[in-house]
Design a protein around this nucleic acid. Structure first.
Lengths: 353, 353
DNA sequence: GAAAACACCGAAAAGGCTTTATGTGACCCT
DNA sequence: AGGGTCACATAAAGCCTTTTCGGTGTTTTC
């Protein structure tokens, strides 16, 4: 049912309700308070050139009219809009969201609003969005990639600072905030070793992802530091449960002595655990299992709950926001900043967790 | 070294920082083209009062300066900003994202930019965001709930139209776009029946969710229409695999004759399938299994792939965006609009899929 | 008692754009 | 030739806020 009543020019409001942006302008407030707009502005912005009594009158008038200053006019004058663009190439993916949440959180704490744009992996669309955002005079841009491999830079001649997150920019002059995947691999192995495991295998994911190569490298490094080696080298495949099952079957057949399996993702780990259970290998007593990503939906509900490496995505987003703030304030940075990860221990490596 | 002057958190940034890419303004374009700003404006906006040759000159000048009009100034004048606020109460959840994608898509196709705000389920934070968005003079608001139960209205006296998605507003005067959960339950049962099943059980999720009650109701209706009943009535629990496993064990013990299990979510279905496999019941030959949500990550990688009801979230977001457009254009609507769902058939009900 | 200091307020400009109203010349008609 | 129409260009008036600068009236200082 449609009704055509016009809600936009409403009746007078008593000012009791808190949320009414409405059309009240600063001159309305000034008129009601019996002062000039200049004085009203100063009063509301805490400038010093206003008598306390006058300020109070203005504030009351503003309250009564539910005045809220027009951010457009303010931004037009200030040259700063207090907005940033958040450009993601893949909202659907699991990784953009927490990053986005972290960034939104950090900005919302300040007085910055976030324009969200999803390029859907299309660079034409991305260009279009960048242009639109610049037209809106955002103060800065955050670009979130969909995988960890380097991506093309937006260019050096943008009028606003840019921070790349998750996927670094190909241009080292840009500032990129990424996950330390080598460190993540190292951390994982160190945890397994400290659980007393020595015959460790690594079932990874898609080999075309930089992340899987880097994690494998970190894992090898950590093993080498103890004079150990991977059992049966790294097995690459895809990021799926199916691959986890297939790879686990082969691994157990070829190397039944294995006492820990590091998996490329929680989904892979899930498949691996299914096979272990079917073959009556106790987790973690016979074989410890570990994943990457700490994807709650998989880690908490598996049997037993899965130990995993958390990528701290929210922090990634928050740090990106902070760096962008700094750049906007005239303190730019460049290079690649790799943030560390964190082991979340559950029952698949530590009984009782 | 840049000045380390008092760059206090305020706007006292007196242009000391070298803003390198100062954006070209319309007067720059006009000067370069040798016309007045008024003419330049009309030329670039396709107004009629401009000679073709003049228009070409202006366009070339604009191109040369890579001019893009300042959306702030334009919005200030027009009273419309071409922005909307997207207020979600829970970004983390699985449902907001596709809705958000649909909306972003629909708006991006027009010339509307989206402010994203996450209230994190906190109504104080929500109020704060609403106020901030109104200060930025958004043209409209979309409010995305985190569960399907009705939520408090933002109020009738907002200066801009609002569309509620997923969770309807408690106020029937508001416009809400939701999923037809009763219809979804009906659809599911009809599919199972058309697969030849008659002894159907329903393992649902958290009973405090309206969605689970409504789906159960739809399921009962569809069964009643064929003179059938649920085996062992609805079993409520939580939306987890663990509950799926527990409930399936009990169900199979009490009603071994069951030939289909409708599950409250794909995760529940996942648990149910684990138990069926452990008890050597063939899926779908002995027992068909079905879920709700069509969460790819669960449906595609289970054994066999899981038939599920897709909620069409992207369409939900797109429709919400369209309704908001209409309302902004002065064609408001109210009431609750329930969109239908869709069965995605896979191997867990239909062999060979 | 005059000069300076001070506290407070208002007029006005600026910021970039669109639109209205006004102005100018070219052209056509009787 | 004068009046009218038409096509085009421009000046100027906003939109809403912040900030600078100038102007009161009052107080302090020597």
């Amino acid at each position: 049912m449609l009704h055509t009543e016009d809600r936009s020019q409403d009746t007078m409001n008593d000012g009791a309700a808190p949320l009414k942006g409405r059309k009240a302008t600063l001159s309305d407030v000034a008129r009601l308070a019996g002062v000039s707009v200049a004085t009203a502005s100063k009063a509301l912005n805490g400038r010093s050139q206003v008598r306390a009594e006058t300020r109070a009158r203005v504030e009351e008038a503003a309250e009564q009219l539910s005045f809220s200053p027009n951010a457009l006019a303010r931004g037009l004058l200030a040259g700063r809009t207090g907005t940033v663009g958040l450009l993601t190439s893949d909202l659907e993916g699991r990784f953009s969201i927490p990053i986005l949440m972290g960034a939104e959180d950090a900005f919302g704490a300040g007085k910055v609003a976030v324009f969200l744009c999803d390029a859907r992996g299309d660079s034409i669309r991305e260009q279009h969005h960048v242009r639109a955002l610049l037209g809106r005079r955002v103060d800065g841009l955050i670009v979130v990639g969909s995988r960890t491999d380097p991506r093309p830079s937006l260019g050096r001649d943008l009028p606003v600072p840019v921070v790349y997150v998750y996927a670094p920019s190909e241009d080292p002059e840009d500032l990129s905030i990424i996950v330390d995947n080598v460190g993540a691999g190292r951390q994982a192995i160190e945890h397994l070793i400290s659980c007393g495991r020595t015959r460790i295998a690594h079932i990874s994911g898609d080999p075309t992802y930089g992340a899987s190569q880097e994690r494998a490298q970190g894992a090898r490094e950590a093993l080498a530091a103890r004079g150990l080696e991977l059992i049966g080298d790294v097995r690459f495949g895809s990021w799926t449960e199916g691959w986890g099952r297939a790879a686990a079957s082969m691994l157990l057949a070829q190397h039944p002595e294995v006492d820990a399996i590091l998996c490329g993702s929680d989904q892979v780990a899930r498949g691996v655990m299914d096979v272990l259970r079917e073959q009556d290998r106790k987790i973690p007593d016979d074989v410890a299992v570990m994943g990457f990503d700490n994807w709650e939906i998989f880690t908490s509900h598996s049997r037993p709950p899965l130990t995993s490496i958390d990528m701290n995505f929210e922090r990634l987003g928050r740090v990106a926001a902070q760096r962008l703030f700094a750049a906007i304030d005239g303190k730019p940075a460049s290079g690649v900043e790799a943030l560390d990860t964190r082991v979340v221990i559950r029952g698949s490596t530590a009984p009782g967790h």
